[in-house]
Amino acid sequence: MKALLIGEYRQGKLLDTTYELKAFADRLGADSVMLLVGSDAELPKCDSKVYLADAAKYGEYNPDLHKQLVLQAVEKENPDCIVFVHSSYGWDLAPRVAVALKAGQVSEIVALNEGAYEVNACNAKLRRTVTPKSGRCVLTIQAGAFSPTGEPQGAPQLERLDLSGTASAIEFVGYEAAEQKGVDLSKAEIIVSAGRGVGKKDNVPVIAALASALGGELGASRPVVDAGWVDHSHQVGTTGQTVSPKLYVACGISGAIQHLAGMKKADFIVAINKDKDAPIGEIADVLVVADVMQFVPAFTAKCAR
């Protein structure tokens, strides 16, 4: 079995998730080659073959051109599967490649189950095993689901890829930096986060009060930020900050993967949720089944004492 792994660059940097692709291929027991649209300045540490196309020429985000580059590598390598990280780059590009090859795509694989691909359904309340019915398939893996075992090492055997033209229907204008950080959660030792379950903006101070009673910072899930209850700088998750506090308290947060991705490295996780089956229970060290607005004030009072 052979896997073509599609790595990622962002703002000139090779993303760490690229190594997760390799870990996944190893778990599959597949030989792997890699394709990168990047630069010589940042090459992955590995011993396999790496096709390199120049990001200066093809852009970091240009799915039309990147698709053609992937197809060229497919032509050369004839892989059984083409693997992406399920990221803003991967989910954007993978289906384009799948259509061109008329290959089935399995999205956001979280585990391998006797060779079959496991994915989440219904906000991680269910799991599905999915089997490709096409000879060749396209796979995207959940970020963080397949961690590399050791430190990456080695030097790749490079082979350059080029296209004859660079005409594209999409023009990448540039990056917009994340909003100015009001708080830097990445260094916080204790974070108490508010989720949609807190119900309303007026309740946020109750969560913030617990944060300060514990001497920590206020975090938030995305819906709370989208609703304007809390500033974006407090958002934890894939599109917010990644944090690793000693204690993380999730108040009324269901535990969607995009949130977990930002906080699962916390040493100790407490979740307060009225739903005993909420997926946050999967990673919480303690799940308190209660109404946040009843539990949190009581707990804060206790902490203050």
């Binding site: 089935g104 095993t129 089997t131 999967e282």
Partner: peptide, 28 residues
């Protein structure tokens, strides 16, 4: 179809995590 669902099932519960139910005061 190019992919098929072979099975759907609840995720295996990760053991270890403690579930605190019951009265608020006792939970606190």
């Amino acid at each position: 179809e190019l992919t098929a669902t072979a099975a759907i099932y609840p995720p295996a519960k990760k053991g270890g995590g403690l579930v605190l139910e019951g009265e608020i005061g006792a939970q606190v």
